[in-house]
Simulated assay, not measured.
Amino acid sequence: MSHDLTFDEFLKVDIRVGEVVRAEPYPEARVPAIKLWVNFGEALGEKKSSAQITAHYTPESLIGKRVMAVVNFPPRQIGKFMSEVLVLGVSDADGGVVLLVPDKDVPLGGRMH
């Protein structure tokens, strides 16, 4: 059953720009994943995430990459790793996740509107 969001409901989702400052393989995950540490600037600081993005990215290729993430979901335990934010992506034709990224230089912690 479909539910149309109101604009006020949409505004409750806090999506911000962050920069990956650390990334490590997460071989213990059930589905291949990468552990990320993302800096959202002074307002939010550094947050952790586990992302199933191994089809297109290696940990090394992610350092310095700007990403978009939902920052106001409750933390979620992914195996032995606590994921604090949801990094956003879209599946390609083969099911590999491609990250949603800003296409211009924007400030860390900037909120999507």
Score class of each variant (00 low, 15 high):
M1I: 13
M1E: 15
D4I: 13
T6G: 13
F7M: 10
D8Y: 05
E9R: 08
L11D: 08
K12A: 12
K12I: 05
V13A: 14
D14P: 00
D14I: 00
D14Q: 08
G18H: 02
E19G: 00
V21D: 04
R22A: 13
R22N: 03
A23V: 03
P25Y: 11
P27F: 06
E28N: 14
E28H: 13
A29C: 14
A29I: 02
A29L: 05
A29Y: 01
P32W: 13
P32T: 07
P32K: 11
K35P: 01
K35N: 04
K35Y: 04
V38K: 03
F40T: 00
E42D: 15
E42P: 09
A43Q: 14
G45K: 11
G45D: 12
S49I: 02
S50L: 13
A51T: 06
A51Y: 09
Q52L: 04
I53E: 06
A55D: 15
T58L: 02
I63L: 15
G64R: 07
K65Y: 01
V67Y: 00
A69M: 09
A69L: 00
N72P: 03
F73G: 00
F73Q: 02
F73W: 10
P74E: 13
I78N: 00
G79Y: 10
K80T: 15
E84Q: 14
L86V: 14
L88P: 02
V90S: 11
D92C: 06
D92M: 08
A93W: 07
A93S: 13
A93E: 15
A93K: 13
D94N: 15
D94Q: 15
D94E: 15
V97Y: 02
L99N: 07
L100W: 07
V101Y: 02
V101W: 03
D105W: 05
P107L: 10
G109R: 03
G109W: 05
G110S: 14
M112Y: 11
H113D: 13
